[in-house]
């Protein structure tokens, strides 16, 4: 099963976080974390970015991958497993599904797979959303 939406059928995610990759999702994080260690720079200049930040850590060696804003939204849509990533992205960004570039999501998924951060499941062919 590839995870295509079918009435009455169980939806299987086509992507999931790779084994050995840790994740911290900060949905309401500011875009630029401070070097002092908090999410807020000392000068208070950060503007919260829609989508927050997802930190992915391939253990045991690293380094940490930081997905912020739209990238964080795309990642969540890919691994959510609750249906079509395009619909999920459209919902999260508050736009129409027609306005979401499915090919861009697919390219992004390929990048994450190549980086070893997520894995593709099922018989779905790479590049097919």
């Amino acid at each position: 099963m590839t995870g295509d939406s079918m009435p009455g059928a169980e939806v299987v995610p086509r992507w999931s976080r790779a084994v050995g990759v840790a994740v911290v999702d900060v949905p309401d994080a500011d875009e630029q974390p401070s070097e002092a260690g908090g999410e807020h720079p000392a000068d208070g200049s950060a503007v919260p970015e829609a989508g927050g930040v997802v930190y992915l850590a391939p253990l045991p060696d690293g380094p940490v991958a930081v997905l912020s804003g739209a990238s964080a939204v795309l990642y969540r849509a890919l691994v959510a497993g609750d249906g079509d990533p395009v619909a999920r992205v459209a919902r999260d960004l508050g736009v129409s599904p027609e306005d979401v570039d499915a090919e861009a999501i697919d390219d992004f998924a390929d990048e994450l797979v190549e980086a070893g951060l997520i894995v593709r499941h099922g018989a779905g062919q790479p590049g097919a959303l």
């Binding site: 974390p33 380094p63 990238s71």
Partner: peptide
């Protein structure tokens, strides 16, 4: 995509 530790 990868970040320096200080930015995390």
């Amino acid at each position: 995509m990868s970040a320096a530790p200080d930015l995390v």
